[in-house]
Every structure is written in C-alpha cells, then in structure tokens.
Simulated assay, not measured.
Amino acid sequence: MEEKLCTLAVRIGVRSRLNVLNLNVHAENFYVHLFNELFGLSLVNANAYDQNATAIDLVDVLNKIIIQVSSTATKQKIESALSKDLSAYEGYRFKFIPIVDDASGLRKQTYAAPAGITFDPKTDIHDLTSILREAAAMEIDDQKRVFDLVKTELGEEFGTERLETNLAEIVNILSNEDLSYEQKSLQVDPFEVDRKISFNNLDSLGSLIQGYAVHYARLDGIYTEFDLRGVNKSNSIFAAINAEYLKCQAAEAGAGLFFSIIRSVVEKIRNSSNFNRIRLDELELATTVLVVDAFIRCKVFKNPNAYNHVAA
C-alpha cells in the first residue's frame, strides 16, 4: 500500500504541474478531502464562508486552522499571505500547502506571523513528500481510504502502468481481417476436434468451437508473419492464453471455464497500452477466435490420446 501511495504522490505532482490554469480551485477542493482524511480535520473551502476570502483557501472552524493552497512555492508567497488582514482568524493556526514535491527549503526560513496567528514552518508547510510521509504512518485501513480518495481524484488514468502485449497486437491485426470467410489451406480435422471437445466435457460448445475452427489457417499465416518480427512472438501469445486458462481452471470447468478464459484474455488485452480501441463485441469476437485456435493447437484444455488436429 505504501508503494501505491508513493505512485499516487508522483501522479498528483504531475497532474498539478499540467493543470496550471485552473490549478488552484481544483487543488483547494481536493486538499479539503485529503487533509480531512490525513489529519482528522473538518476543513471546508473558505469560499463557503466568504467569496472574497483573502490569502485563505481552506478553513476548519472546529480545530481553528486556516490553509493557503498555492502553485507558487516561495518565501515571498507565504509572507504575502501572512501580511494580509487575518484578524477574523485570531487564535487560528496557519498552514501553507505549496503544490510541489519538496518544500524543505521553505521550512528552514523564518516568518513573521501576525498577532493571534500561530505558524511554525517546520510543521505547518506541507508538500507532497511530507503528505506521503503522513500517509505511510497511517494504519492500513486508513491508508486505503486515502488511496481510494486519490484514485478517485485521478480518475481512470490512474492505475498500474499499462504495458504493450503481443496479445493486443494480434487482436489489432485480427480486427482488420474479414472473418466472414474461410481460408482453405491447413484445415483442421473436425473429427479430432470433436474428440477433444468431448474429452473436456465441452459438448455444449461443439458448434461454437467448430464454427471458429475455420480460422485456423488464417491465424497460422498471421503467426508465421508475426514470428518474423522477433523471437517467441507467437509463443508468448500461447503462453499468455495458457496462463489465463491455468488461473481460471481452479474455479471453473467445462463451458464455464472456456468463457472465463475468454473474459480474462479480453481484460488483459484491454489493459494493454498498444491495444487499438474497438467495440467490445468486436474484441470478444477476435478473442474467441484466439481462444478456440489455442484450444485446437493444444495450448488450453487436455488432449485425448493420439490427438492430431491438422488435416492438409
């Protein structure tokens, strides 16, 4: 969880630097929720009290805390905020949140806080590094709440880094193929395929498997061309489908297992950075062709004795 929080901190920093124009308003609302979770505060946006609030962005009346959130991380910015009329907040503690990775240099400076306002730069200046440190010290359940909060803030772009896969590349190729006709060379032996279907209790899927088996020659050609681009290209695809089969077989069998493999492979492809987005039904069609082909080629499910699927 701490590693995930570290990744979140990096993403927050990147997001902050990329959204300079509307950064402050967006960051104010985000830090309201984040600091309430981290420190158990009751912060609200200062505009809820005063549309013309000067130097103050967030207010916690209950705990007597005022905060300025700023994309400018300088001593002058803090001094400017402290020089404003803060008499309405007598007895409050002032905190400063510069949206930067490291504000340790600001914590070493001295500042003149107005009468009635408490400000200790060592503890009252919070950057992304110090926020992450606070989160790392929390209990696991509390960390999860913070993680979920920031994940929601970052939206769908947040998540485990997406990598390219050969599975996605094959689907990209298949999505441009006309699957409405059968290529005639290197056909499969329907009797042998039927034997494997029965051997694995997949009789209810017999027509589906035999129907998609007609694409065996097409995929054989694609795999042959694919392997010219590098070592183990097609083998990596078979290994990936087999891995999903092995994962799913612990909980499923028969037709249920077959469709679980398809769902798992679809998800793996959708999470690939090189997947060219297509409609879901088209993706499921291409994936079913791949899984049926892997079934025929002995990459998934058990083979009956003397199984030989290829017929010239």
Rank of each mutant, 00 (worst) to 15 (best):
residue 29 N to Y: 13
residue 30 F to C: 02
residue 30 F to I: 07
residue 31 Y to R: 02
residue 32 V to N: 04
residue 33 H to M: 09
residue 34 L to Q: 05
residue 35 F to C: 11
residue 36 N to R: 09
residue 36 N to C: 09
residue 37 E to R: 11
residue 37 E to P: 12
residue 37 E to A: 11
residue 39 F to A: 04
residue 39 F to V: 00
residue 39 F to T: 05
residue 39 F to S: 06
residue 40 G to S: 00
residue 42 S to I: 04
residue 42 S to H: 14
residue 42 S to D: 15
residue 43 L to Y: 03
residue 44 V to H: 09
residue 44 V to S: 10
residue 44 V to E: 15
residue 45 N to A: 10
residue 46 A to Y: 02
residue 47 N to A: 10
residue 49 Y to P: 09
residue 49 Y to H: 14
residue 49 Y to G: 15
residue 50 D to W: 02
residue 50 D to F: 03
residue 50 D to A: 04
residue 51 Q to L: 11
residue 51 Q to C: 12
residue 51 Q to K: 11
residue 52 N to C: 09
residue 53 A to D: 08
residue 53 A to Y: 00
residue 53 A to W: 00
residue 54 T to Y: 11
residue 54 T to D: 15
residue 54 T to G: 10
residue 57 D to N: 03
residue 57 D to S: 05
residue 58 L to C: 04
residue 59 V to H: 00
residue 59 V to F: 01
residue 60 D to R: 03
residue 61 V to W: 07
residue 61 V to P: 12
residue 61 V to T: 08
residue 61 V to R: 12
residue 61 V to F: 11
residue 62 L to F: 12
residue 62 L to S: 14
residue 63 N to L: 01
residue 64 K to D: 01
residue 64 K to N: 07
residue 65 I to L: 11
residue 65 I to S: 02
residue 65 I to Y: 04
residue 66 I to M: 02
residue 66 I to Y: 02
residue 68 Q to K: 05
residue 68 Q to C: 05
residue 69 V to L: 08
residue 69 V to Q: 11
residue 70 S to K: 12
residue 73 A to V: 03
residue 74 T to Q: 08
